[in-house]
Design a protein around this nucleic acid. Structure first.
Lengths: 241, 241
DNA sequence: GAGTGGTCTAGACCACATC
DNA sequence: ATGTGGTCTAGACCACTCT
């Protein structure tokens, strides 16, 4: 009879899942801490262990939480191997993964460009922190990266002491309480420009892989906009379907 | 005491899952058919419904099977939208998806090249069927595709009547009983060559996105090796993380 | 031994599709 | 009305970790 967009019925375990997620997002349980046991939580929420387990399993499947048999359930951090490679898809031609080394070229606070503002959901002219860096793989410059984040949500990022960790998402989480949970990447093939030639030492017009990533927090709000240009002579982008 | 690589303990629901998968792979339940209900299967295997459900849920999560509340569980086919877009990641610049139209340029049976043989796990000199086609998106040539499959597993593919469906995996499944379940794609940026210029009508040296896909069957054996070159002025490759 | 998550069971009830 | 998958419960037992 009524017009309702949300289904009239909402499974209990989903409600529990959202309640738990809220407590994680709010900082009640910071990343790296063990949350109460299944039985404790099931009593607290007045549901059966099975239902609570289903909620936790869903969160584990979304990489919000990691379960360890015999130990407990911990809020995910970005310093675990597993979590690291969720967002890093560049591998060697033989499929081997290695960790990049970063060198920061630019770090400044400035007004957002229109594309950046629309992607990040900022008002026109709002400020962002812009970081440009080169990332080396196997002692060879492989990636030229430009990224912007809201200067309000990441207040002081432009003054963070060097060196910045090369896994920036860890810094976002520890210093600013912002957890990157999901992302969408759009890939293009582009010709190398002057900046690319200089920092990636490629010849002019060389085809590069351009990766435009929008990183989002636990609730799906955009956190970071990142454009990476990558040379694909020695590496490639690997996607498992 | 003993050295055993496989964990001594093997959950019941995993054994059930493998048993069901075997029956699907063997052609006992062809794609598109409804398999027996949960209660029927739980009786057949002598396990509780909950355990059987966990096995089916795992298969559903791997896109082997699709569950419909109130109707039943059906073996996945490649003619469903859901399954279609598992492997097709090209979208318009605004994120909208449209279905490509294909035109076959080459269809021949020939000896495998060394790279193809090693990727597909064939002996040197074994025969493959090679298909080259152009795929159009929104009335514009967007993709130049070369793919090879074993001429033994796909005996007669080179003589299949035109037109070939543009969703080839559907044909693989219906005519040859081969289901593509997973794939890995490696992405590169390359410069357009003579063939690309001709069929994609791009200028020489234009950067193109090259996608090298290895498609695998339900057991993980390579089925098809496909190299696609794509123009990224009007489309891009979208990946959700 | 005590506590955690992982598996398995049996049964009740709900939402959905079909007849 | 019947049958299907989806949710929820309560309880038993197993495997793992730590003390």
């Amino acid at each position: 009879m009524e017009h309702q967009l949300t289904p009239s019925y909402r499974p209990l375990y989903q409600q529990i899942k959202e309640a738990l997620l809220t407590r994680i997002v709010s900082g009640d349980w910071p990343p790296g801490t063990f949350i109460p046991s299944e039985s404790a939580l099931s009593k607290e929420y007045g549901v059966s262990v099975g239902t609570l387990r289903k909620a936790l399993d869903a969160l584990a499947h979304e990489n919000v939480v990691i379960r360890y048999q015999g130990k407990g359930t911990v809020v995910a951090t970005h310093d675990t191997d597993r979590s690291l490679f969720q967002f890093f898809h560049l591998v060697g031609l033989n499929g081997e993964r290695s960790l990049p080394i970063s060198r920061v070229l630019i770090r400044q606070r400035r007004a957002a460009r229109s594309e950046e503002a629309s992607v990040l959901g900022l008002a026109a002219g709002e400020e962002v922190v812009h970081i440009r860096r080169v990332r080396e793989l196997d002692d060879r410059p492989a990636l030229l990266e430009d990224l912007v984040v809201s200067a309000i949500r990441f207040a002081g990022l432009e003054r963070e002491p060097e060196p910045l960790p090369n896994t920036l998402y860890q810094l976002y989480q520890q210093r600013f309480g912002q957890s990157v949970a999901q992302a969408e990447e759009r890939l293009f093939a582009v010709a190398a420009g002057p900046q690319d030639q200089r920092y990636l030492s490629v010849s002019p017009g060389m085809p590069l892989l351009e990766i435009r990533r929008i990183a989002k927090d636990l609730q799906g709000n955009p956190l970071e906009y990142r454009v990476s240009r990558c040379e694909t002579q020695h590496h490639c982008y690997l996607n498992q379907l």
